[in-house]
Computed example of a mutant assay.
Amino acid sequence: MSNREIEIVAGGARLAAKFYPPSGPARAHLLLHGATGVPQFYYRNFAHWAASHGIGVLTYDYRDFGASQQGSLRQSRATMATWGIEDQAAAEATLCELAPEGPLWLLGHSIGGLMFPFRRHDSRVERIITIGSGFANFRDHPWSYLPIVLAFWFGVGPIATALAGYLPGRRILLGADLPAGVYWQWRRWCTKRDFFRSDTGKSLPEPDFSAPDVDVRIFTMKDDVVVPPVCVWRFADAFPAGSVKRTMLIPGDFGLKSLRHIQVLSKHSAAAWPAILGL
C-alpha cells in the first residue's frame, strides 16, 4: 500500500504528515519524532522499509518547519518545547486514531527522543526507541567537529539569528532554517551543563525519569560526533539503573564504514535498521 498524506492538528497549528500503512498483518504502528532541522522527507526510505516488514509508520514535520511551514519564519513563535510537548503529543494522538488497535511504538531521533519523559502516553505504547538522543554540551564534541559547534552556538549562528529574526541555516551553511525560538532554546540547552533543567517548571513540565513501564531502548552510534555517546549515556543515566536498554551501534558490525548522527536513518544505513527495531 502507498503512503498517504495526513494533517495533524496541534493546538492552533496544522502539521503535515505521512502515513505508511503496514504490508500484511501489522506487527505494530510506529511514530517517528524527527531530529531538529531534519524534514520528514528524509525518513521516507526508513518508513517504506518498516512498512514492508509489517510496521506502519507515521512521520511528520514540526510546526513552522519543512512541509508544515505556512508563513514567514520571522513570525513564528515556536520553541523547542512547543515541538517536543504540543506537536509530539498531537502526533501521538493522531497515530492512536489511525491505528485504533494493536501495539504502538515511538521512535525519537536526536532531540525527538528526549521529550517522552515529559508526557504521559497511550496505554498501548509498548516500546520507545531513541537514536542519538542525549544531553549534548558543546564541550563534549571531538576537536574535529568543535569549530562547527562553536560557530553554530557562539559565532555566526547567534549573530545571524539576531539579525534575520530566524536561524538562516541554509544561508550560513549550518543546516536548515529554523524559527528563532527553536534556535535560542536549543542553544541554551546545549551550552549549559544542566541541559533543559533551567526550563522545567517554565516552558517544560517536570520530566518523569522514574522506571518506565514500557520497553525503552536507547541507541548511540560509535562514530556520532554531533551527539557523542557520552551525551547519550548521560541521558540514559537519568533513569534508574537497569530500567532502559543501552546499545552502541558500531558501523563495522553491519558491514558499513559509517553510521553517524543523521545518516543512521538514511538508506545508506539500512543494514542497521533491523537491530534498531529489534526485528
Score class of each variant (00 low, 15 high):
Pro117Ala: 13
Phe154His: 09
Ala99Arg: 09
Met115Trp: 15
Ser133Thr: 00
Pro100Cys: 07
Ser123Glu: 15
Ser110Arg: 03
Glu97Thr: 10
Glu97Met: 12
Pro147Cys: 04
Ile111Ala: 11
Ser110Pro: 00
Pro117Met: 13
Ile128Met: 12
Phe116Gln: 11
Ser144Glu: 06
Cys96Gly: 08
Arg127Thr: 13
Gly112Trp: 04
Ile159Met: 09
Pro142Asp: 07
Asp122Met: 08
Trp143Cys: 00
Phe152Met: 08
Ile128Leu: 12
Gly132Ile: 03
Pro100Asn: 05
Arg127Glu: 12
Trp105Asp: 12
Tyr145His: 05
Glu126Ile: 12
Phe118Leu: 15
Ser133His: 02
Ser123Phe: 14
Gly157Ala: 04
Leu106Cys: 07
Leu146Gln: 13
Phe116Glu: 07
Arg127Ala: 03
Leu107Asn: 07
Phe118Ser: 13
Ala160Val: 03
Ile129Met: 10
Pro117Asp: 13
Ser144Phe: 05
Val156Ser: 09
Ile159Ala: 10
Asn137Pro: 03
Ala160Glu: 06
Ile159Asp: 10
Phe154Val: 02
Val149Gln: 08
Arg119Tyr: 14
Tyr145Val: 01
Pro117Tyr: 14
His141Met: 03
Leu98Gly: 07
Trp143Lys: 03
Ile128Gly: 04
Gly155Leu: 04
Tyr145Ala: 04
Ile128Ser: 09
Gly102Pro: 03
Phe116Trp: 15
Ile148Phe: 10
Phe138Tyr: 13
Arg120Asp: 15
Trp153Ile: 00
Asn137Thr: 01
Ala93Lys: 11
Pro142His: 06
Leu104Ser: 09
Leu107Ile: 02
Arg124Ala: 12
Leu150Gly: 07
Ile159Val: 11
Leu114Arg: 01
Phe116Pro: 01
Leu114Met: 10
Leu107Pro: 01
Leu95Thr: 13
Ala99Ser: 14
Val125Met: 07
Leu104Val: 10
Phe154Thr: 01
Pro147Leu: 04
Gly134Asn: 06
Phe154Glu: 03
Ser144Val: 04
Gly108Lys: 02
Asp122Ile: 06
Gly112Leu: 05
Trp105Gly: 09
Gly132Phe: 08
Pro100Ile: 08
Gly102Leu: 05
Phe154Ile: 01
Leu150Ile: 04
Phe135Ala: 06
Leu107Phe: 10
Pro100Trp: 12
Trp105Ser: 11
Tyr145Ile: 00
Trp143Asp: 06
Gly134Pro: 01
Ser123Thr: 14
Phe118Tyr: 15
Gly108Arg: 00
Thr161Ile: 03
Gly108Met: 00
Ser123Leu: 11
Pro117Thr: 06
